[in-house]
């Protein structure tokens, strides 16, 4: 056996000492990781973000602790328990230890219970998802009475292969999603072809949009700015282009935008996939098969194609 470990073993005191130091170091580093983890995420721009980030930091802390605990032990073993060359003798023949087994079954169980209780409570705080109602395909999407109160809406979010269109309660159509800050807005998520997903990383929120069903959804933006809205459920050839912006502005500016947009004529909205497809046709239609992109949406506010975004 390695001389170093034998020396440590002789003085039982120093073994406990090393373990205590290691645990303290591990806890410190895990807390630091939890603290840093906030910086790995985009700007917090909705009410949900703060809850999600706290939960994530909590998990990062626990995860780091477990990971370092396990791999640190492994590293220790690799340093101190290496067999010298040509030594093929056996190690200590430990067959098991009931007490240890029980501890390492119960502790993870408790941890898991803790994490899931915590995230269940976050789930109930968020409650973004309203109802999901199937309707007969081809018919007009039915109107759904929402039980919950909200400040603005409902805005129809229509996703297609591959563009987004937003229809406001007063009938205006837009290619970008304008929202008033700090107000709970309500949406009706509608798709006309395949499954899409409404995903705004800065909001930490994502909801699939299912053909044949209408899904209501609500959220409260808390920060002014321009945020990317990305389709997050693979939807075919130009899936990666199926993005637009969410523009969160003060209530005043928002209502001004509504008022001014009503007056605008309908025009062609954002449709990056459409122009890429035209380019492909011009270049001889090479590549594998794809369905044709939906025509340009007819909107009052056409949006700006490469508007700089905050996150």
């Amino acid at each position: 056996m390695n001389t170093k470990i034998r020396r440590i073993k002789k003085r039982g005191f120093s073994k406990t000492f090393i373990i205590i130091i290691a645990v303290i170091l591990n806890i410190t580093f895990s807390l630091l990781m939890g603290y840093w983890s906030y910086s790995w995420l985009p700007i917090q721009a909705s009410e949900a973000a703060h809850y999600v980030d706290n939960l994530f930091a909590f998990e990062t802390t626990i995860g780091t602790f477990i990971f370092l605990g396990c791999t640190g032990t492994m590293a220790w073993i690799l340093v101190f328990n290496r067999a010298p060359k040509y030594d093929e003798s056996n190690g200590e023949p430990l067959e098991g230890n009931l007490k240890l087994e029980i501890i390492w079954t119960i502790v993870p169980l408790l941890l898991v219970l803790g994490i899931s209780t915590y995230s269940t409570s976050v789930n109930y705080k968020l409650e973004n998802l309203g109802s999901k109602v199937k309707y007969d395909y081809g018919a007009e999407a039915p109107f759904i009475e929402e039980k919950k109160v909200f400040d603005y809406g409902p805005i129809d979010v229509i996703s297609r292969q591959w563009n987004w269109e937003f229809v406001y309660p007063n009938g205006i159509h837009s290619s970008e999603l304008h929202l008033p800050v700090d107000k709970k807005s309500n949406f009706r998520l509608i798709t006309e072809d395949v499954i899409h997903s409404f995903y705004v990383p800065a909001f930490r929120l994502k909801q699939d949009i299912i053909p044949g069903s209408i899904i209501t959804y609500s959220l409260t933006p808390t920060k002014k700015g321009v945020f990317r809205l990305r389709d997050a459920m693979f939807s075919g050839a130009y899936f990666s282009e199926n993005q637009t912006n969410v523009i969160v502005e003060s209530e005043e500016i928002f209502y001004k935008w509504i008022k001014e947009t009503v007056k605008k004529e309908l025009q062609n909205g954002l449709n990056p996939a459409g122009s890429l497809y035209q380019k492909r046709l011009r270049n001889g239609n090479r590549g594998w098969a794809t369905v044709k992109p939906a025509p340009d949406p007819k909107v009052n506010d056409a949006g700006i194609e490469s508007r700089p975004h905050d996150s």
Partner: peptide
């Protein structure tokens, strides 16, 4: 994570004090 943890910890305990 619980039964998986049982395995992971058992492997580490197998390594512990071995002749690696």
């Amino acid at each position: 994570a619980v039964p998986t943890g049982v395995k992971v910890f058992a492997w580490i305990a197998t390594l512990w004090g071995g002749n690696i």
